[in-house]
C-alpha cells in the first residue's frame, strides 16, 4: 500500500453511487456499512437479481456489487441480462460488476467472467479486498467488447478470483 493517498479519493467516493445485490440480510448490512465508511453515501440495496435489475434501471449506479447465488434470480443471470445487447436501455456494457461468492472453483469464476462480471471476490469478505476491488474497477479506463448479443468485458480475458489470505482460506 502506498503512503500518500490521492487527495481526490474522499470526494470521489462521495460522488459514487453503488448498487448492492445480496440475499443475506447480514451481508447486505455489512456491505452497506463498509461502503458508507468509505464515504459512499449513495448505496442502493436489492435482495436478488430481479430486484437488482429493477434498481439498476431506475437508479443507474456507477458500480454493482452482487452475490453469486441468490433465488429466484442469481447474480450470474442478472449480469448476463445487463450485458445483453438486445435489452436496450436496460443493458450496460461498462458498469463494473463485482461478484462476491463463496465458490472458489475455477468453473464458477469462468462462468462469472463469461456472463460479464468485471471482478470476482471470494468470501469471506475482507475490508482490504473490497476496497482494492472498488479502486481497481473505478480508477482505470474501462475496456469492453461489442458483439452480437453481448456488450461487456471481454469473455476471453483472464480473470482470477481475489482470494482472502490465510487463515481465511
Amino acid at each position: 500500500m502506498t503512503e500518500e493517498p490521492t487527495k481526490a479519493a474522499p470526494e470521489f467516493f462521495h460522488r459514487l453511487k453503488v448498487l448492492v445485490v445480496e440475499d443475506s440480510a447480514e451481508m447486505r448490512r455489512l456491505l452497506d456499512a463498509l461502503l458508507r465508511s468509505m464515504g459512499i453515501e449513495h448505496v442502493i440495496l436489492a435482495q436478488d437479481g430481479e430486484g437488482g435489475l429493477a434498481a439498476f434501471a431506475a437508479e443507474r449506479p456507477d458500480i454493482i456489487i452482487t452475490d453469486g447465488s441468490m433465488k429466484p434470480m442469481d447474480g450470474y443471470e442478472m449480469t448476463r441480462r445487463i450485458r445483453a445487447s438486445d435489452r436496450g436501455a436496460d443493458a450496460n456494457p461498462d458498469v463494473p460488476i463485482l461478484m462476491i461468492s463463496g465458490h472458489v472453483d475455477r468453473a464458477f469464476v469462468t462462468h462469472a467472467r463469461d456472463q460479464g462480471v468485471t471482478d470476482y471476490l471470494v468470501k469471506p469478505l475482507l475490508a482490504d479486498m473490497l476496497y482494492k476491488a472498488i479502486i481497481a474497477a473505478t480508477s482505470t479506463p474501462i475496456h469492453f467488447v461489442e458483439k452480437p448479443g453481448y456488450r461487456g468485458p471481454s469473455p476471453r480475458r483472464s480473470l482470477d478470483a481475489r482470494l482472502p489470505e490465510p487463515p481465511f482460506r
Partner: peptide, 12 residues
C-alpha cells in the same frame, strides 16, 4: 493513479 488511503481502510 488513485492510491489506496490507509485512513479509509482503518475506517472500514
Amino acid at each position: 493513479p488513485m492510491r489506496l488511503d490507509p485512513r479509509i481502510l482503518d475506517q472500514m
